[in-house]
Design a protein around this nucleic acid. Structure first.
Lengths: 217, 217
DNA sequence: GTCTATATGGGGATAGAC
DNA sequence: GTCTATCCCCATATAGAC
């Protein structure tokens, strides 16, 4: 009678996918440092050693999660931008906001993971992140700058507008627990996403409107 | 010739204060799980064993930091509320917003620590936190509810308004690194604080104004 | 590609001397 | 109240069999 189980061969892709899913789930719930590779292996129902074999360790796992997340987003973004050809800047901006809100909703675990770890100075994948974040910012900034050039937006500080917009967009997905338990809203629902898009739209209109007595401090 | 150093007796308060300061700094920069008690002891220039002696271990340290933070804030808040007697709801609200913004600025390390760890489901001090967060929310909510009752605010969803407000208030202090490196703003400066207060005020005015065609979705 | 077994280090905590 | 020395556990990672 044998002691150990038979080796399970699911094929590279299956195994890698299971590990990634487990890692996303656990990093999200417990934080990167709070998660052990043993937990990941168990959650994925995969042998411990396979994590190092496929991803060069825990850190590699994090980097793959982050890179895949942004690559996927930028692919969707490119498609959206193409579809937006010739639209008014504000509508184009709102379309991007909506895309990003639903993207966050659909990738809630990695979203929260990234946004949380980003606030850790000693983060492992900081260099990787910085590049993506700047690209992310630029995809929104370019539209606003374009609108200012064309005179349809007020000549405000683009950075200030973007920071306010980002705060509204990101916070609920960084802290969905609080949103649920304190504000009794469900960040995973379609209604919430639509509300968030509408709120951001209202903020952007209020900040970007070109004409009036907007005495900017 | 002796090997070890002489015991340094700084007195309980001095030692505890040094440990707390070091812990705040390191938890902030590296996260709770990313920080070791050995690092804290070294940063505080204090013997390792004193951390467990004074705070019953790493977890106790976190709890003391959180509790002190909120106790301090609520003390300031009570003073502010007393000073606000008879003010208009909106002005009262703005006064609280200003108080909180500068409080975050002046306690940046613990602010970031709390907001980050709050997004970890398996957080050690979750029960402690939940109580404080609800108290925090209520101090803002009560003013808005009061304003709605008295007809000076539109009868909006208080939770939605508060979530939007909180997003704007908190995000920059959760992620000051990004604010600096991506948006080129300095969250520690007075100008930034004032800008943030003004932005929140604009948002609140835009959301709470009672009369017009505000077709809320 | 998968598994067992193990190497190696670092973690939090404390006993007991001073 | 402080310090040294140490316990004991659990972390990541890999060597080598299958």
């Amino acid at each position: 009678m044998k002691r150990g189980r038979e080796p399970i061969n699911r094929g590279t892709d299956q195994t890698k996918a299971r590990i990634l899913a487990a890692a996303a789930k656990l990093f999200d719930a417990q934080g990167f440092d709070g998660t052990t590779v043993r937990q990941i292996a168990k959650e994925a129902d995969v042998n411990l050693a396979l994590i190092s074999y496929h991803f060069q360790g825990k850190r590699g796992l994090l980097e793959v999660l982050i890179a895949s997340y942004y690559e996927t987003f930028f692919r969707l973004l490119a498609a959206q931008k193409a579809a937006n050809r010739g639209t008014e800047p504000l509508d184009e901006l709102i379309a991007l906001v909506r895309l990003y809100v639903f993207f966050q909703r659909d990738h809630a675990a990695v979203t929260r993971l990234i946004q949380r770890e980003l606030s850790v100075e000693s983060m492992l994948a900081r260099e990787v992140m910085t590049v993506y974040i700047h690209r992310w910012k630029h995809s929104f900034a370019s539209i606003i700058e374009d609108g200012i050039t064309r005179g349809v937006f007020a000549p405000l500080s683009v950075d200030q507008v973007l920071l306010a917009m980002t705060s509204l967009l990101v916070y609920p997905y960084l802290n969905p627990q609080s949103v649920r338990e304190v504000y009794y809203l469900e960040p995973g629902s379609d209604e919430f996403c639509e509300w968030l898009v509408a709120s951001v739209e209202q903020l952007l209109r209020s900040l970007l409107k070109p004409s009036p007595t907007t005495s900017r401090r």
